[in-house]
Amino acid sequence: MIDTATITIAIASGKGGTGKTTLSTNLAAFIAEREAVVLADLDVEEPNSGLFFRAEPVHQEVNYKAIPQWDESKCTLCGICTKVCNYHAVIRLGPSIVVFPELCHSCYACSELCPDAALPMVQKRTGILSEFRADNLHFIESRLDIGEEQAVPAIAKTKKYAAEKHPQVRLTLYDSPPGTSCPVMEAVREADFVILVTEPTPFGLHDLKLAVETVQVFGIPFGVVINRYGTGNKEVDEYCSKEQIPVLARIPDSRRIAELYSAGKLIYREIPEIREILKEILNTVITMAKGVRK
């Protein structure tokens, strides 16, 4: 099933604010200097990679998820639906079955197990998927509507769209959401390689350990990029060397980088050292991702 010519790299982190978007956008733009690349912003609750590109919109579509809709005329109020819902998204209140669409995980259990077919699944809008293009760079993002709680369906849809729309592009990058919960699992689970971005602080280390455990569940090869290197302490370095986790790069702590980022600029274009770091990360990642595939 896997096309060995293509490589998908997920850029993730346990802790938020470590530099996922900085690395994703800079790496994507760097790759786009030489070849086509897809960057998908999977942080659908707060996508922000798009801020770094002046790209033309090429496509937009509505994202949906499936939710049950109660058909009062068929319902016998047996309550099976309320018992099978793990998320209490379907409850019985006296003579009514009430569905909470935001809590629904679209598992179909209530709908399939209803003996009276009183909960048919219907499509509910969750947000918008947009694709932009700037020369070699195909940028795709999904954005949840306000009040939507389920990121996973939007993330799955965005990945599917990216893969189907650009099957010929060799490198695809995912800018993942932070943390280690369901959205992150969905974002990284089919990637060929995961880059975990962290910072050399106790917080960074704590959340890095959680992120490592997450990626290990899937058995995906991964490496660590330590951002803001030179601040904090040596514990992330020590952890990685003890666990034999490859450190792909150490990006120095720099006021200049922070200034460029806050101005919406790509840092590698202004700082030659960063360009070298990106080149090294890319070479290592491609080699490691291919190595696993044999």
């Binding site: 209490h88 209140l93 909470f100 809590l103």
Partner: peptide, 15 residues
């Protein structure tokens, strides 16, 4: 033990 939906679960009991 509920990761999600504690509010609606309890609401059903109260109801």
């Amino acid at each position: 033990n509920e990761a999600h939906g504690a509010g609606t679960a309890t609401a059903q009991k109260i109801f």
